[in-house]
């Protein structure tokens, strides 16, 4: 088992709390970058927790770690603050998903590293009802 703890820990602020940065121009960077173009000033920003489905695809044949979840939907979500994220769309029959559908962020288990490894958590989206 490859130990992935350092990478997992590094991503916690984004995966758990959607921590981003916003430039004075209004542009949102998620995840925040290490360096920004010259002159761009950024301030901490938490991503909006609601948005809509811009586009999505249904996965019937998934990578090994996600094979129990098939069929599942992976969407591009435009959040209410304009930021776009890629997230699984869950708690819905994949046949019912539509573009433009309002969704909200929920905290879920993203991945399990086999029987011995880490349980990896982060955001997914669910339909607003």
């Amino acid at each position: 088992m490859k130990i992935r703890s350092p990478r997992y820990a590094r991503e916690i602020p984004q995966r758990y709390r959607c921590e981003a940065v916003k430039a004075e121009t209004g542009e949102i960077f998620f995840p925040p970058r290490v360096v920004y173009p010259k002159g761009v000033k950024v301030a901490p920003h938490t991503l909006a927790q609601t948005g809509k489905v811009l586009s999505y695809t249904i996965l019937n044949v998934a990578p090994m770690e996600y094979s129990d979840l098939t069929p599942y939907a992976l969407g591009v979500i435009e959040l209410d603050d304009g930021a776009r994220i890629t997230a699984q769309i869950v708690d819905i029959d994949t046949a019912e998903i539509k573009t433009g559908m309002p969704v909200k962020i929920e905290f879920r288990k993203l991945r399990t590293e086999g029987d011995e490894g880490l349980l990896c958590y982060g955001y997914k989206v669910v339909p607003m009802r």
Binding site: D68, D91, F107, R108, K109
Partner: peptide
């Protein structure tokens, strides 16, 4: 609980 839900989530 769903497959991606547990006590923590």
């Amino acid at each position: 609980p769903g497959l991606d839900q547990d006590t923590i989530t």
